[in-house]
Design a binder for these strands. Sequence first.
DNA 1: TTGAAAGCGCTAACAT
DNA 2: ATGTTAGCGCTTTCAA
Lengths: 333, 333
Amino acid sequence: MSVKIKDVAELAGVSVATVSRVLSNGSVSAALKTRVEEAVAQLGYRPNLSARRLRSQLSQTVGLIVSDVRNPFFTAVSRAVEDAAYRAGMRVILCNADEDPDKEAMYLRLMQEERVSGVIFSPTSVTAGRFRPERFEFPVVMIDREGPPGLTDAVVLDNPQAGRLLVEHLIARGYRKIGGLFGNVSTTGAARRAGYEAALAQHGLPSSVRFVAPSTEAASTAVRAWLAEPDWPDALVVSNGLLLLGAVHALTEAGLSIPGDMALAGFDNDVWTGLVGHGLTVIEQPVYDIGVVAMEMLLSRLENPSLAKRKVVLNGALLERASTSGRGAAAPS
Amino acid sequence: MSVKIKDVAELAGVSVATVSRVLSNGSVSAALKTRVEEAVAQLGYRPNLSARRLRSQLSQTVGLIVSDVRNPFFTAVSRAVEDAAYRAGMRVILCNADEDPDKEAMYLRLMQEERVSGVIFSPTSVTAGRFRPERFEFPVVMIDREGPPGLTDAVVLDNPQAGRLLVEHLIARGYRKIGGLFGNVSTTGAARRAGYEAALAQHGLPSSVRFVAPSTEAASTAVRAWLAEPDWPDALVVSNGLLLLGAVHALTEAGLSIPGDMALAGFDNDVWTGLVGHGLTVIEQPVYDIGVVAMEMLLSRLENPSLAKRKVVLNGALLERASTSGRGAAAPS
DNA sequence: TTGAAAGCGCTAACAT
DNA sequence: ATGTTAGCGCTTTCAA
């Protein structure tokens, strides 16, 4: 098959151990080192990672299991994880679980078979609820969505706070009938809803929520149905980018204006949110930080497995744009 | 460390060979088979893929090296590749080369070290131009962008045809000063430009082109500069989704209307293209097909390495939307 | 059908 | 500093 360490050793006239030392910067005399390097270059030798991993019991690999690669939030996070991983000399296996608990289980099994050093994971709420970290030989860092409290490391947005921020903003702009559209499959939707409810309650305003599957189509269907009812909201809080797009579709189709007929505020500063009308008001997540921090947590966990589990909570930033420009009158308190 | 085949064999009271046969559906008596399966379940045994790959010399893995994971075109293609790969019992290692020839070289080296069965690759034009497939032990299928003609399999869009389609459409809608904005790093931009030039020449119309780096920022900078010139086009053909977004930004900032001040036609039916004004006219690529066909080509190449190299050319579909609604008068021929 | 044993390519003791 | 050798966990002859 391909050229192996033995071939290099023979050409250089040294033992395989010496070649191995050269490759891993062990102590080798300058003379032998150059001879080996020449042999490597001449033969085009490339080490076999399967053999190396098997022997050294070091995978130098982390798994990243995301819910949906089509969601720009996760592609942004995965780039950050990749960058941080390569800086630390690690490789990343990117897996796309498609919001499907079966696929999540399949990939976790695969990670075990690959003997990865650790996994960064954004689980569905089904998997999050029953996740047993002790069943896996690698540490897991949850991102975006939390698992059972205290059982794994996690880095998440302050979701209740973000939900609250949007509602407070809408109230300040004069909106009073504020609906909420949330994803039904991740814990994120539930946490954002909690903040939404709390803020409304604090102002003595009623809430009105819908839960939908995490897809643009499901969201637009839900909003269409909502619009068919007699008394729809004058503003909508939407819990992620995919759903927000669905809401925009439904409103546009119905010939309604944003924010004239309905104000819209959501999550994720995706490219297109700046293009709808004069822009959509959103919570911008620190996507790159989320990825980098997750990787750092994983590395420090690998260095020190007995550390207490940590949860890092990051804050989103409110980007005020035209989709919530207000009802004319300023808000009473 | 973790439980291994020997542990399973001992618990089941059989040899490791028998366990291995059970795992790979070799011929084993029903009685032993159940005993082994029970032992596997009881111990939670998971095979070590590094060991398996080392011994069997079969990686069951393909590499997918894309230019930019943030580009929805590539995330869509990668999902298709993944689906097709899993159907064929293969895994996918997704690598993001970031339009950087150095990273491409690094990943190709990594693929060699992983001893992958094959690679699906969308190279920069730098790498495409000097690509030597015989230097790699695995077959390569190029996607989206071609390498040296006849040296590798490839699946690409009919780019000249697509460029032509857009220009013909604009001419039919009454536009005469049709500019072109193309990416300077992939062969795709050049091929689309060729079609653009050919169509204009055929109608005796002048061309006017700009080449830019493959980023939204570069595109908006270029368009801004263009608008500062005295005689800018009344319609623009833009060679991909990232650049198209940049063009939209520049026009919007300048307070210009689409298509009133400038018509816009581009590539890639990204979600947001439907949201700009009443929609952007674009060539929609058969993204899923591209991925599936690439995987199929790779599999058939693995089965039959001596096959002649093939190039599959797929057609894009013109989605006519409001951004090219016309200059009032119908077009003369 | 089953088991014993060799060996995939590499690293890491251990010896020199 | 360098070489010899055992063995990582598995698959695959080869015998029985």
